[in-house]
Nucleic acid binder design. Structure first.
Length: 257
DNA sequence: ATGGCAATGTTTCATTGA
């Protein structure tokens, strides 16, 4: 079982790359973020032709999440958003697939520490923790994948001094991320020895990618039964290369049957 | 072994991202 999460930064622009990546990697389940598409424009037909059923919650211009699953897998109990947290922004999609509960998330960016959007991000994180507590109670096999917009530790940052206290790295954001782990989830990436300076996002500007000036802000969290089955967790930095890449690379976990 | 912002809207620049 291969489970992936990828912020594609516009699915309409990235569809050719996504299709090529699906063909090359054949993940079983994929959480997509920043589709930036109204539902009526979602490329469900193209994905079906590639062998994937799609569920999605989109909006024009901003945000938008989707969950792809290989057609042989049954997808059920699809749910959009965070219960009890009214939000126009499409940032959460959950479904039951292959005996596990998969939650795809696109956490708010936060813009700048102290801003209104930063406050929204922290409130959003608290609401997500509440939701995951409930999901975990119902589904012991829980995976949460997506763009968390937090670099959990300094080793997830190319230049910790430069980023100290900045949005994506501030202590309140890191505490909000740790509160998700405290629900009973593991950051799958840290279940294994990893190469230093492994990141999932690089700014489009200032040669950030070739200089590897990145952050690790995309994650897949696993509950204990799934962590026990996890044999690998990695970031596909190759997907950041070439023409018209997303600024994020996909993150993947392998789960033994 | 990569590349010097990108995507969207209704544009002729503003906004957002991270």
């Amino acid at each position: 079982m291969l489970l992936a999460a990828w912020n594609v930064n516009s699915l309409s622009v990235r569809l050719p790359r996504l299709l090529a990546w699906l063909a090359a990697n054949r993940p079983d389940v994929v959480c997509l973020q920043e589709t930036k598409l109204a539902d009526e424009k979602f490329p469900a037909r193209e994905l079906a032709a590639a062998g994937y059923a799609a569920h999605f919650a989109g909006q024009k211009t901003y945000n938008g999440v989707a969950l792809l699953a290989q057609e042989a897998l049954h997808v059920g109990d699809v749910a959009i958003g965070i219960p009890g947290f009214p939000d126009e922004q499409k940032r959460v999609i959950a479904a039951t697939v292959a005996g596990m509960r998969v939650v795809g998330v696109y956490v708010p960016n936060g813009q700048a520490v102290g801003s209104e959007k930063y406050r929204y991000k922290l409130d959003w994180y608290a609401a997500l923790a509440g939701m995951l507590r409930g999901e975990l109670a119902r589904h012991p096999a829980l995976a949460v994948g997506g763009d968390f917009n937090v670099a959990p530790e300094d080793r997830d940052v190319h230049d910790p001094a430069l980023w100290a206290g900045q949005v994506l790295c501030s202590e309140p954001e890191r505490a909000a991320f740790r509160a998700l782990l405290a629900v009973g989830l593991a950051d799958s990436f840290r279940l294994f020895d990893q190469p230093e300076k492994t990141f999932s996002w690089w700014d489009y500007r200032m040669l950030a990618f070739p200089k590897n000036h990145g952050l690790r802000i995309d994650h897949i969290l696993l509950s204990p039964p799934l962590a026990a089955r996890c044999t690998a967790s990695r970031i596909d930095r190759n997907a950041r290369k070439g023409e018209k890449p997303s600024d994020h690379a996909p993150v993947l976990v392998e789960l033994r049957d």
